[in-house]
Amino acid sequence: MPSPPLPSPAVTPSASAVYAYHELAVEAAGAPHTTELAEEVAVAVAYNGLSQAVMLVSPGDLEDFVVGFSLGNGWIQSIDEIYDIQLSGTGAARQAQVQIASGAFWRLKQQRRQVPGASGCGLCGVEALEQALPRLAKLTPQPLPPADWLLDLRERVRPLQPLGQRCGAVHAALFMDAQGELLLGREDIGRHNALDKLIGALARQRRPLAGGLAIVTSRCSLELIQKVLRAGIQTLVSLSAPTGLAVQWARQHHLNLIHLPQRHAPRVYSPEHRP
């Protein structure tokens, strides 16, 4: 069995930088100010030399992104199918050369699609309904997490969002283990990318998923449900409301789906309440 990919000694870019700006005012503008803004880079991902996608992502945790992107899209079924990751490039243009097992490469070519590099990308580039609505394995039903795990959750996740606190403009995905402890978080300009990075980090660190839950700060739509199902995470908590189709898929696939509104009690959408 191949060993898990080690971090590449490639470029370690900054996730943010300081920029100057002027205030728009009726009177003459004063001295310029500075603020920290989130950065983004274009990453071209190739598998066994075959170009697959170009994505706009935040430049941190790129190895996690590549692993989670591969798992979340179903191109590999296990991190053990990734043999090597080589990152290269400078500035806004980066490359990720990924070596994967022959069986995984065959599957990738069978379902190959080109995904445009947009930070808001969801199902861009999908050419058939079968790709947008794939057949995914159902999870084994699991109990809902204790209600006290979600108390003050919005405040508790903030320390795991350093880039968002400094710059804004980014989404976060986080993981809570089976003891209700927040373990790690990942941030990105793209909500899908943030979840990919989290899934990749969990896989690379060999974290047990049973009994744990993922938390996303963004809108919860179908493609996030699909990524969590493929990863085998049994509960998803969203700080923003889910779409109707996301709820339908969560119920059909036995995924616990909880929305945590700002001023109301947690809302359990899946499993469906049956009086």
Rank of each mutant, 00 (worst) to 15 (best):
A104T: 05
S70R: 12
A250L: 13
A104V: 04
Q110K: 14
I199E: 03
L224D: 01
Q205R: 15
S58A: 13
Q110P: 00
G68L: 08
P143E: 09
A128N: 06
V237I: 15
D177A: 03
R274P: 00
E127R: 14
W149E: 07
P134M: 13
V170M: 04
L160P: 02
I82V: 12
P208C: 05
S240L: 13
S238P: 06
L150I: 10
L151S: 13
A44C: 08
E36A: 14
V26G: 10
Q142M: 11
H273F: 09
L236K: 03
A246L: 05
S238L: 06
A265Q: 09
P271C: 10
P145R: 02
Q262M: 07
R263P: 00
R94N: 04
A17C: 02
A178W: 08
Q86G: 01
S78F: 00
A31Y: 09
R204P: 00
L62P: 01
C124R: 09
A128L: 10
V43H: 04
R94V: 03
L153A: 11
H253N: 05
G89V: 08
R112D: 06
A25M: 11
R156E: 00
Q86V: 07
L87Q: 10
F69M: 08
S102M: 02
G185Q: 08
L136G: 06
A265S: 14
R154W: 06
L222H: 14
Q165F: 00
A20D: 07
V126C: 15
G180I: 12
G168D: 11
L213W: 08
I233P: 10
D64M: 00
H33K: 15
R112E: 11
S88G: 14
I189N: 02
Q226N: 11
L260R: 10
R154M: 06
L183K: 14
L160A: 08
Q179A: 11
Q52K: 10
P266E: 09
C167Y: 02
A265D: 12
N193Y: 11
S3F: 13
A53C: 13
M176R: 12
L183F: 01
H259Q: 14
D177W: 08
H273I: 01
K138S: 15
V216D: 03
G91F: 03
V228P: 00
